[in-house]
Computed example of a mutant assay.
Amino acid sequence: MTSSATVPVSLGERSYDIVIEPGLLERLPGRLEHLDVRGKVGVVTDRHVKRHYAKQVIAALTKKRLEPVLIALPPGERTKTLTSVQSILDVLATHRFERSSWLLALGGGVVGDITGFAAAIYQRGIPFVQIPTTLVAQVDSSVGGKTGVDHRLGKNLIGAFYQPRAVWIDPMTLRTLPEREWIAGLAEVIKYGIIADEPFFSFLEREMPAIRVRQPDGVAAIIKRSCEIKASVVAADEREGDRRRILNYGHTIGHALEALGGYRSLIHGEAVGIGLFQEADLACYQGMCDRSTVQRIGDVVQDAGLSVDMPRWPSSRLWKAMLHDKKVSGGQVVGVWPEKIGQVRVAPLGRKVFERWYAERKDAPPQRVAAKASRK
């Protein structure tokens, strides 16, 4: 994997670059100098990522005569709480961090969201940099300035919009990513093709076998294109007033499934993968797209190694969990529904429609092999 790229996120005075560069962590001192990082630097990570990369990052900071402070949290979605944010703030206050001090988020989406939120509220805002080490974080959560934590009643209910000063992506970190996490991250990649780019979706259909085994060129391509799409959407709608809502496709049902499982049974990308297919099926039920669109989505999700099957929750429990999502508006569940590959619409969902669909739905796409053969 040798290709490098820079993707700008154009937000006026809050603009920054996403730098995608294999081996970036080895050249971290130069990146720090380019951004003029000075003084105390808190490195927030989790205990898994710490084992692989913390020593290298701390050495780079020390080489630049900075003052690193390592903050290692337990791994997993259940760490994404106000208690964890409080623990970061305690360290910053104890070490007398100032407004000119920095935070580095070294890890996956949970680390990035927590670190960004802590940066947003400590002394009313200090600068931070995202250094994502998982696929989900590299293609999605590290970009766009959404920070925050979960509440026991719903995911991401507490947080703030706060942009990083940079996103530094080293695709080489994906080599140490567990297989389950890698596959789960592909759900967010597939999402981008569905919401905005049919040619990219077709690329995923063709190249998914190579992508599954982390073929370097395929990995580089999906990271770059995903970041480009995310950056363009964020630049058009930073605070999710309109256009940015399309990024929630697959997450209305996905977030509800995560919450119902207590953030234990499904990791984020697995839940989103189910949501991609089930929300397409629900869109088809409402007459928004044809069955072939649902079929294609179901096929590529499964080719990525993800399930499309809905866990056996009563419809009333699932609906209640969906009502606690931050995307609810005026007491209504608002979803993102594909009209065709590359085009979606945002529209409310009625409970009666949802319950009828839920009672009649089928989990897996039918005639999968025949459908794939007909597209060749």
Rank of each mutant, 00 (worst) to 15 (best):
T2R: 13
S4F: 07
T6G: 03
V7F: 07
P8V: 01
L11H: 05
E13N: 08
R14K: 15
Y16Q: 00
Y16R: 02
E21T: 13
L28Q: 02
G30D: 12
G30P: 05
L35M: 13
V41T: 03
D46Y: 01
D46E: 12
R47I: 08
R51F: 12
Y53Q: 05
A54N: 05
Q56S: 13
V57T: 11
A60Y: 10
A60P: 02
K63H: 15
R65E: 14
P68E: 00
P68G: 07
V69S: 06
L70I: 01
L70Y: 04
A72C: 14
L82I: 12
L82K: 06
I88F: 06
L92R: 04
T94F: 13
T94V: 12
F97Y: 09
S100N: 15
G107W: 06
G107I: 05
D113L: 03
I114G: 11
I114V: 13
T115C: 06
Y122W: 07
Q123D: 05
R124H: 12
P127V: 05
F128V: 08
Q130C: 10
Q138D: 08
Q138K: 07
Q138Y: 05
V139Q: 03
S141F: 09
G144R: 01
G145T: 12
K155T: 10
I158W: 06
Q163M: 08
P164S: 07
A166T: 09
V167M: 08
D170V: 10
P171N: 03
E179R: 14
E181Y: 12
V189H: 00
I190E: 02
D197F: 02
E198N: 13
S202I: 14
L204F: 14
E205S: 04
R206Y: 08
E207K: 03
E207S: 14
M208C: 01
I211V: 14
Q215H: 11
Q215N: 15
V219H: 00
I222S: 00
K224Y: 11
R225Y: 12
C227F: 05
E228A: 03
E228L: 08
S232W: 07
S232Q: 14
V234H: 05
E240A: 09
Y249G: 07
H251L: 03
I253S: 00
G254F: 00
H255F: 06
A256P: 02
G262M: 11
R264Q: 15
H268I: 07
G269T: 10
G269D: 09
A271K: 02
I274H: 10
Q278I: 07
Q278H: 04
Q278A: 12
A280S: 15
Y285K: 10
S292C: 07
V294H: 01
V294G: 06
R296F: 09
I297K: 01
V300A: 00
V301E: 04
G305C: 03
V308T: 14
V308E: 04
P311Q: 14
W313D: 09
P314A: 06
S315I: 08
M322L: 02
M322D: 01
L323A: 04
K326V: 05
Q332P: 01
Q332F: 11
G335H: 10
W337E: 07
P338L: 05
A347G: 13
G350D: 13
R351H: 04
V353Q: 12
F354Y: 08
E355T: 13
E355R: 02
R356N: 14
E360P: 02
D363S: 14
D363N: 15
P365K: 00
P366M: 00
P366E: 10
Q367T: 11
A370E: 15
A371M: 09
K376N: 13
